[in-house]
Amino acid sequence: MKHSIILLVLFIGIKLNAQTNEFLVKFKPIVKQQELKLNESFNLFYILKDSTQITKLKFYISAIQLYNDKELVYTEKNSYHLIDASDTNSYFINLKAFPNKAFNNIKFNLGIDSATNAKGALGGALDPTKGMYWAWHSGYINFKLEGISNLCNTRNNGFEFHLGGFSYPNNSLQTIKLDVSNNKAIIINVDVAKFLAEVGLGKTNMIMTPSKTAVELSKQAAGIFSIN
């Protein structure tokens, strides 16, 4: 009896293992259809002949789920990822224990939810040494974009967007849902130039506090994610 139970457990274990896999999701920051290169100038508006470059891009992706229409197919465990343009390895997310099931859309958060924000010190991607935690007003920075553009009338023409805030009324967390057409690896473009073009760098170029503006800009940031 005892042996057969052990065998059964082993069998189920092997069976489960055979049905699961790893699945790759890539977040690919782009500028003008090309993969983003930090510290390299580009022209944001052809007509303005501006010179713009990005020096830093970091953002959190969390709570990744896959759906088949409305049916939940997969939820990633401990789903917190820091995408950092200075480390292109961070673009790749390996979803573990992935089921052999059809799906047609992906859902994830841009940023860190308020329950996680309330938990205190956390490690891994969420370690406060990652430069994505506000000390003067506790909370994670969800999306950080810095650079230089002659469109900005600021010190050294710099722009800095630190978007975050997890409590009412300035909760800036964004949920993004994208249709996926096939079952191969998913590549998600993050069109950084689109964000800068829509923001109006001449007027809006320094946002570093949880605020109404940060919420609006977070919505715009959510709009730059699309399936390749």
């Binding site: 924000n117 205190g120 010190a121 040494t129 000390a135 003067w136 506790s138 409590s167």
Partner: peptide, 24 residues
């Protein structure tokens, strides 16, 4: 400004007029 005790120490560590240091 701080809602959870674990994160409190970050405030004086990074404040310019106090420790003026980074957690990194």
């Amino acid at each position: 400004a701080v809602h959870q005790l674990d994160m409190q120490a970050l405030a004086p560590i990074s404040n310019h007029d106090e420790m003026d240091e980074t957690i990194e």
